[in-house]
Every structure is written in C-alpha cells, then in structure tokens.
Nucleic acid binder design. Structure first.
Lengths: 237, 237
DNA sequence: TACCTTCGCAATATCGAGATTGATGCCGAC
DNA sequence: GTCGGCATCAATCTCGATATTGCGAAGGTA
C-alpha cells in the first residue's frame, strides 16, 4: 500500500516476526523454557507429556526438538528420546573462551568496517540498554533488559561481514544466557555491568578495536566468575 | 562379554555406528547427497517426491531435514518448505577465512597439549592418508581418500580441549567439502596436496604450532583458489 | 498491452493411531 | 545373597490421512 516504506524501520528495533507455523511456535517456547531454566539440564523430554503442555502433536514436537539440536540446547540419544542438554563448569569455561575469541574477532572486524549507520544504531542500542538498566535497578523489567542487552551485543558486531562468525556467536550467546539464568536465578545485576557496557561503547565509537575487544573479553569472562556456584546444576551427567 | 575391551580400538579407526533409527538413516543419506552435489544448491526439497526415494514417511523426512538445518546444509522458508542451502563465492570466502581462524586455533591448542597417544594417532592417520593418496593417483578410490583426509584433519586437532571449537570446525569442514565437490566434480586431486599434508604433519610433530597453523591456513585457502569457476552453482538465489 | 483479481491445484504442515524398542520389576538358579 | 533372564509396560518412532496455505494460470478491467 504505502509507497516504499520498508517493512522494518531499523535493525535495532526489529521485533521477531510472529511464528507462522506450529513447529516454530513450539520451538521458540521450548528454547525460552530451556534458556530461562524452567527445564532442568539433563531432564528427559517426554513427548507424551509435552503434547498437552504445548498443544501440538507428537511429530510436530519432535521436529521442534530436532531444531533445538542446532542450538545445542537439546541432545538426542539414539532411540532413547530427547533430553535437555547437560551443563558443567568445564562446558561453561569452554563457551566463555570460545566466545572471547569469536566475539572479539567479530568486534574487531565490525569496528574496522562499521559505517555511520552502524554508529547510529549502536548509539540507539546503547541508549535503550542504559534506560533499561536504570529501570532494572528499581522494579525488575528483567525481560526488557535481557532483550536490549542482546540487541546491544548484536549491534556491536553487526558490521562484521562474516555471517558464519555471527552465527556461531549467536549460538554461544544463547548458551551463556542459559548458564546465567541457571546460576543467578534471583540475584540482580551486578553493579559494574553498566560501567563495562559504557567502556565498551566508548571504545567502539573511538574505533579502538584492540581496546574494545579487550574490554569485551573481560566482560565475557566476568560472567564466568560470577558463576562460582552451581549447586543443583552440576548434576547433568 | 570381553573383560574391558573398549568399544572402539582407537580414534583413528572409529567407524560411525550404524544408524539406529530411520531419521538418522535419512539424515545421513541426505547429507551425503547434498555434500556430494547430487542435490543442486537452491533446489526445492519436495517431501512427496522424496518419500519414495528414501522410503520413509513424511514426518520422518521432515525431522531429518530439520536436523540438516543444524549443519546449514538445508534452509527452511517459513511455510514454503525446505530447500538445499544456496551457495555463493562470498559464502565460500567466509567459510574459508572462518576455517582458517578456528581450525588454526584448534591446531595450535592441539599441538600444545597433545600427548604421545595423539602423536601415535596422528602418525597412523597420516600413514593411511598417504596410502590413499597413492591409490588415488591410479584408480579412483575417491571415497576412501575423502574419509581419510577427514580423519587426518580431525586427528590433527583432536587434542584441542575445546569441544565447541571442534564442533564449529566440523560444520565448516562439511561446508567446504560441499564446495569442493561442486567445483571439481571430475578433476583429480591437485598434485601438491600430498606435499602440503606432509609439511603439516612434520610441523605438528615438531610441535611448531605457528608454523603448522600457517601451513594449514595456506592449505585451506588453496582450496578457495582452485574454485574459480562456479558455472551453474551461482544460481542459488 | 499491462495489471489486478479470482480460482484451482499442488505442496506443506499437522494430527492420531499403530508398530517397534528400551526400561523396570519379579522370579528362579547358582 | 547376588546375579542373570524374562515378562510387562511405558515411551519412542513411524506412517497414512486431512486441513490449511501458497503458487500459477485464466479471466476481467482500464
């Protein structure tokens, strides 16, 4: 109808389109439940039970679970059904270091190649994140902060030309988010996270790739440090 | 039955266990057909037709296709079915550089941490690869060479402790193998590949991580160079 | 002639039921 | 008392059928 209004205004505002298929819907719900810790690591995923919970047939659920294997949030054991992917401190350490390498490289490339539009998107995303962090200090708009934090990290590396690196970074980000939920289920955000984000933002706008990636590395590793406890989480075989 | 004989003798000999489910079987056949180029990039994968070819039901095929999305060999377009993942020179360049980074890092770590058992496996794998390359020069035991080349590269980085890096490397290796099949469908192996393998092998045993990763980088990039032609492959939307 | 609308067909997405496999508890033997 | 084998049962895995969606051709309008 309208002349040439692009379907989405800009990348920083893009909301995921509504699921157009039942598989997609079940996939997103399941992923959310796993990442946010409502499904215990190692837990058996019984199709029969979940048919009722998600309101879809067995084959559909099965397909959604197969899609979750891509994200390594679900594992399938031959003919013994599906389980939520187990967790361990070793795995978290691996995720952390791999993130440092991949997200650091993506950030360096992004800083080197980002144009003015990238800068604008970055400023917008940082602004939204800052507002969310202020609101988070009072009430808990946790979900909003989660989303804006994700978008901020996405926009930081948006100018990296490698789709593969960004693909892997996304997978690892989801993994790390799951560990964060498993550890600090109730605690609020540590006090210095905003300072880290600001330092990251400043270094990116100054086009100091090495400084920015160093800050990012510390930022990622600090998440690992805060997860010193894993009481019931380390059961996952 | 036997006292404590491990199920597999060693890593270099490990054969994949037979598929225990029809989904697994269809998944492997499809993956093989895509990697080896029998399914054209961008081609529509019609469930109805393939039901007959693979002898399984629609839901089963659908699940196998969902698994192939993990490997980025298949893409699904909302409610418009599945297609073979498209190809492009940009994508191949991206895959190549990402491989150089990840496989190089994995190799450095592997050389740093490999023990005697790793050295032994590496020697065995290199020996098998050498034999296969000799046989390849005469008749075309192409499949055997493919398999042993894959195992050689796997063993090279086997001592890298990061499962995530190795996971990503495997995905990219499959992608690269597909491009190789798409380009040189008939041609034989270039003459200097064995020399590159030997140099890689020597540097690894000398524990010269930097030298080895440099050779590996050139080795990976040379694959990109040989793919200057992509006549019918670039149709992928 | 070019464009938009409408209609028909092919393909997808999904469900419920049946076949096959793995796990659990009980019983008998050594 | 402990181990191995067997039967029962639950859960997975699979298939054929059905409703819904998307694509292409025909027809109408300016």
């Amino acid at each position: 109808m309208y002349p040439s209004t692009s379907p989405r205004s800009n990348a920083a505002e893009a909301l995921p389109p509504p699921p157009k298929t039942l598989v997609e819907s079940a996939y997103r719900n399941l992923r959310k439940n796993i990442i946010e810790g409502r499904l215990t690591p190692g837990e058996k995923l019984r199709i029969e039970h979940m048919k009722e919970d998600y309101g879809v047939g067995g084959a559909t659920l099965r397909e959604a679970l197969s899609l979750l294997i891509s994200d390594a949030l679900v594992v399938s054991q031959g003919q013994r059904g599906f389980r939520v992917a187990p967790v361990s401190l070793d795995d978290l350490a691996d995720i952390t270091e791999t993130r440092v390498m991949l997200e650091g490289e993506a950030l360096r490339q992004s800083i080197r190649r980002g144009d003015e539009a990238w800068e604008a998107n970055l400023m917008a995303a940082f602004h939204r994140l800052t507002r969310a962090e202020e609101k988070l200090a009072a009430g808990d708009n946790r979900e909003e902060w989660e989303e804006r934090n994700r978008v901020f990290h996405e926009v930081l590396i948006a100018a990296c030309p490698s789709r593969w690196i960004k693909h892997f970074v996304t997978i690892l980000y989801n993994q790390a988010e799951r560990y964060r939920h498993l550890s600090l289920r109730e605690s609020t955000i540590p006090r210095d996270v905003h300072a880290e984000h600001r330092a990251l933002f400043d270094a990116a706008l100054e086009r100091d790739a090495e400084k920015a990636s160093a800050i990012l590395a510390q930022h990622i590793r600090s998440t690992l440090d805060t997860v010193s406890m894993l009481p019931a989480a380390s059961v996952g075989h």
